[in-house]
Amino acid sequence: MTGVTDRVVVVGAAVFHEGRLLAARRSAPPELAGGWELPGGKVEPGESPERALVRELREELGVEADVRERIPGEWPLKPGYVLQVWTVRLLSGTPRPLQDHDALRWLLPHEADTVDWLVQDRPAVAEAIRRLSALPGTAAQA
C-alpha cells in the first residue's frame, strides 16, 4: 500500500531559552554537513512526534525538553520524508553536539540570518523567530 501513511516524519525542535533560538550545524551526512538546522530526528514506529522530539534532544544534545506547540505546515526533505517542527522549552541540561552536529549556537531573533540554514528548515525558522520575538522580555531589535 502506498500513500501518505508511507511517509517518514522527521521532527525538528525550535528550542527557546532565555529569548534565544538554538541552531545546530550538521556534521553528517556529507550532503548536509556544514548546514544549520533545528535539531531533531525521525519518528520511530509507534512513537508520537512529541515523544520523538524529547528522545532526539536527549540523544543528540543531552538535554531534557518540554514540547510546546507545533508550527503549522510541513516541508519535504527527500522523497518519502517530511519535516514537522514544534516549539520546545529547555528544562534541564546544557546542549552539547553529541550526534550528527559539530557546533551549536544560541541566536537572538535579530541574529537568525547569521547562519546558513538548510533550505527545508527556513520556513519553520522564520515562524519560530516570529513567535520568539513575540514572547514577553525578548529583545527583537538589532
Rank of each mutant, 00 (worst) to 15 (best):
M1Y: 04
T2H: 15
G3T: 06
V4A: 15
V4Y: 13
T5G: 04
T5C: 12
R7Q: 14
R7I: 10
V8P: 02
V8S: 13
V9G: 08
V10A: 10
G12E: 00
G12V: 01
A13K: 03
A13T: 06
A14H: 05
E18Y: 03
E18K: 13
G19E: 03
R20G: 01
R20P: 02
L22I: 06
L22R: 00
A23V: 02
R25N: 06
R25H: 04
R26N: 12
R26T: 04
S27Y: 10
S27L: 15
P30T: 00
A33M: 08
G34S: 08
G35Y: 11
E37C: 15
L38S: 00
L38I: 11
P39L: 05
P39D: 09
G40Q: 03
V43W: 10
V43G: 06
P45R: 04
P45D: 09
P45I: 09
L53G: 02
V54W: 05
V54R: 04
R55H: 03
E56A: 09
L57N: 06
E60Q: 07
L61K: 05
L61P: 01
L61E: 02
G62N: 03
V63C: 05
E64L: 08
D66V: 13
V67S: 07
E69I: 09
E69Q: 14
R70A: 12
I71C: 09
I71W: 10
P72C: 11
P72N: 08
G73Q: 04
L77C: 12
G80R: 02
V82N: 06
L83W: 03
L83N: 07
Q84V: 14
V85N: 07
W86G: 00
W86P: 09
T87Y: 01
T87M: 08
V88T: 11
V88F: 01
R89K: 12
L90T: 00
L91A: 07
L91I: 04
L91V: 14
S92T: 01
G93I: 08
P95N: 08
P95H: 06
L98H: 10
D100S: 15
D100H: 15
D102V: 12
R105P: 00
W106V: 02
H110M: 06
H110K: 14
E111F: 05
E111K: 08
E111A: 12
A112P: 02
T114G: 01
T114I: 05
V115S: 02
V115E: 06
W117T: 08
W117Q: 12
D121E: 13
P123A: 10
V125A: 02
A126Q: 11
A128K: 01
A128D: 01
R130A: 11
L132V: 01
S133R: 12
S133C: 00
A134G: 08
A134I: 06
G137Q: 02
G137V: 01
T138L: 11
A139S: 09
A139T: 09
